[in-house]
Design a protein around this nucleic acid. Structure first.
Lengths: 185, 185
DNA sequence: AGTCTAAGTAAACAATTGTTTACAAGACTG
DNA sequence: CAGTCTTGTAAACAATTGTTTACTTAGACT
């Protein structure tokens, strides 16, 4: 083999993730990604086929839900919100959801991808915790609150000064709790 | 005067609103807006100064909260959610919030504008209903839920088939109710 | 009517975009 | 060491973007 194709491929994906997360799909240029990866823009086409496909590869996501079977039933909501906070603001802060939220705003494919995540990962989590009955509806309700929280904090830039994290944790936790196991009308 | 400057100005704003709402700021071209208004792209620069300023003018918004003083105190949440549904899906369906949500995803100025609306209109409404204490926090919490709902339905395209509107009304209404007047931790 | 000013256009401009092509440099194999 | 893929680049390409300039046209006012 040559120098190290896999390594530069990875560097391209990293750089793409960073750029897409900061500026969304349309405002990110392949030149900028390539430059950040220390490589020629042509390699994006060689390795991925184009900007679209690079995005598709850079924006695969795993919400990584924790094991909820050991959690007290009335603590499910706050546990989930705490989980998201931890992922979003943790040490290797997870830009992926931000990439998707930013980009789905104007990109059909990204929107479909979020829908998949909802139907798949969130739906499965709801089923495990609350049973299969109306799991899809619960998953959608949860999505509206979690996406809104992410949008407000990481796209609009609403900060701890506006609402302290403790308050969000308790109040939004309560909301998720209701959407998760309260009886639906 | 000439033909009718005001009328074409208005047509440009209408066309801009439609285009920005459908595709966001970056993916909308001035040529497309001008063409939809049946006019030359140069007029956008003449009348507004450029694409940015046209956007600024096209995206001014008034949430138009109803008078809540006559509403039963335990019905405030559902009333507000019903109000938003009515605005968003009413006869002259109000694209403005969609414009902002779509565009704020990648546009600093649009994000700031949403922040202003929160601090201003939503904040004032909260103060009227729940008093000035911690009104800002309540407004932000409400924003996370309402923005998330709008994002899910009008950007991602989650529909009545996924969650019937009755369910959303009741459950999200309950959430807003809590954020509005429940005691904060 | 004739004239002046505002309204509008067509076309060129300059910059930036994603992508392709033709070519150079590395590393492994015989 | 020669040959040969793979890895990489530089530069040109083609399209599209927002904007500007020079010009034409329509309407109002004396």
């Amino acid at each position: 083999m040559g120098r190290d194709a896999q390594a530069t491929r990875d560097r391209l994906i990293m750089a793409a993730r960073k750029a897409f997360s900061a500026r969304g799909f349309e405002r990110t240029t392949v030149r900028e990604i390539a430059s950040d990866a220390g490589v020629s823009p042509a390699l994006i086409n060689r390795y991925f086929g184009g900007k679209e496909q690079l995005f598709a590869e850079a924006a695969s996501i795993d919400l990584g839900f924790p094991d909820l079977t050991q959690v007290a039933r009335d603590q499910l909501g706050v546990t989930l919100v705490a989980h998201f906070f931890h992922r979003w603001e943790g040490r290797q802060h997870d830009d992926l959801l931000r990439v998707l939220i930013r980009t789905a705003a104007t990109n059909q494919e990204a929107a479909a991808r979020i829908q998949n995540i909802l139907a798949g990962q969130v739906g499965a989590m709801v089923e495990r915790v609350a049973g299969p009955a109306r799991a899809r509806e619960r998953a959608c309700l949860i999505a509206t609150q979690i996406l809104g929280l992410a949008y407000a904090r990481y796209v609009l830039g609403i900060s701890d000064e506006d609402v302290p994290q403790r308050t969000v944790l308790a109040m939004v936790g309560g909301t998720i709790q209701r959407y998760l196991i309260d009886e639906l009308p």
